[in-house]
């Protein structure tokens, strides 16, 4: 069985894998925000080139990268069709009952699909190059200021770490119990709905029993290892920004500037996704660069 604690992590040891996870988390957020400012096909091309560079540097096979699109394929097609038929501005190309197809509608649909696809591929890069453990550390570190308003950031981080640590163990255990009950003739994939639900009982009960037993033992082990001995807990691993993160940020900044310039040069289109707030930011940007 695969180790799900690694999520989609695809280990290649590339420079992107070695970026500070906090940096990667922030970059991903920036990417998510600014991709909504990509309005023209030129801007999409910039994003595409950027993602191609990231994929090549991260040494991740394109096949794996595209795999993430499979999951949202249905969403892409569904929203695509709705937009295609219900968008009624622009030159009418065809119409039937309440459905219309316009030139702007086609344009809008293609852009929306592109934006969604690039967004998913981009954010997926984070989970392909960062382990959940690193992400936990990053979140803990970024949330540190919350300590001062009495949020138990550290306990939350440990809980998260333990949860990640036990997911593969419990998955393994579930597999074993299912196998054991199957060997006793249990069928999980046939029968009516209520029969199938009922058939889960012989799996869930042993799973609960064993989880409680594990939790008990784990509690003893935590105590034996001096958990809660002091409030001034230290941490072995210190996240450190390095020159690598700076270079990565500069590359991302180039993309952002290109997108914003393109956005500025393209005449304000009518497909605002943020109810006008994006225009506010664009105008702000315009006023900056005079």
């Amino acid at each position: 069985m695969r180790d799900v604690a690694f999520g989609q992590y695809y280990p290649t040891g590339s420079p992107i894998h070695r970026l500070d996870p906090r940096a990667k988390l922030i970059f991903s957020l920036l990417f998510m925000i600014f991709i909504f400012f990509a309005k023209s096909y030129t801007a999409f091309l910039y994003v595409f080139i950027f993602l191609t560079i990231v994929t090549v540097v991260a040494k991740i096979p394109p096949k794996i990268v595209l795999k993430s699109l499979k999951l949202i394929l249905f969403l892409l097609i569904f929203t695509g069709l709705i937009n295609l038929f219900l968008y009624d501005e622009g030159r009418l190309l065809a119409s039937w009952w309440i459905f219309t197809i316009t030139d702007k509608g086609i344009d809008f649909t293609i852009k929306l699909a592109l934006r969604l696809a690039l967004l998913v591929i981009g954010t997926n890069m984070l989970s392909l190059t960062t382990t959940p453990m690193e992400l936990t550390d990053a979140i803990e570190s970024l949330l540190k200021p919350l300590k001062y308003i009495k949020v138990p950031v550290h306990d939350l981080a440990i809980t998260m770490s333990i949860a990640l640590r036990f997911i593969p163990t419990l998955m393994d255990e579930t597999d074993k119990i299912i196998a054991a009950q199957k060997a006793r003739g249990a069928a999980f994939d046939t029968g009516k709905v209520h029969e199938r639900v009922k058939s889960l009982v012989p799996v869930l009960i042993p799973l609960f029993v064993s989880s409680f037993r594990r939790a008990d033992e784990l509690a003893d082990a935590l105590d034996a290892r001096c958990y809660n001995a002091t409030k001034n807990r230290t941490k072995m691993k210190k996240l450190k920004f390095s020159y690598r993160d700076l270079i990565a940020f500069l590359i991302l900044a180039v993309l952002i500037v290109l997108i914003m310039l393109d956005c500025y040069l393209t005449k304000a289109p009518s497909d605002s996704l943020f109810f006008g707030t994006d225009y506010y930011i664009v105008n702000l940007f315009k006023s900056w660069i005079g």
Binding site: A5, R165, R225, A229, R233
Partner: peptide, 23 residues
């Protein structure tokens, strides 16, 4: 049932971290 972290060194550091030992 006695390991708390998914990476070996993180797990070993858990005890001394609890005791507030310097990094």
């Amino acid at each position: 049932n006695q390991m708390i972290a998914s990476i070996v060194e993180d797990d070993i550091a858990f005890g001394p971290e609890n005791l507030g030992i310097p990094r």
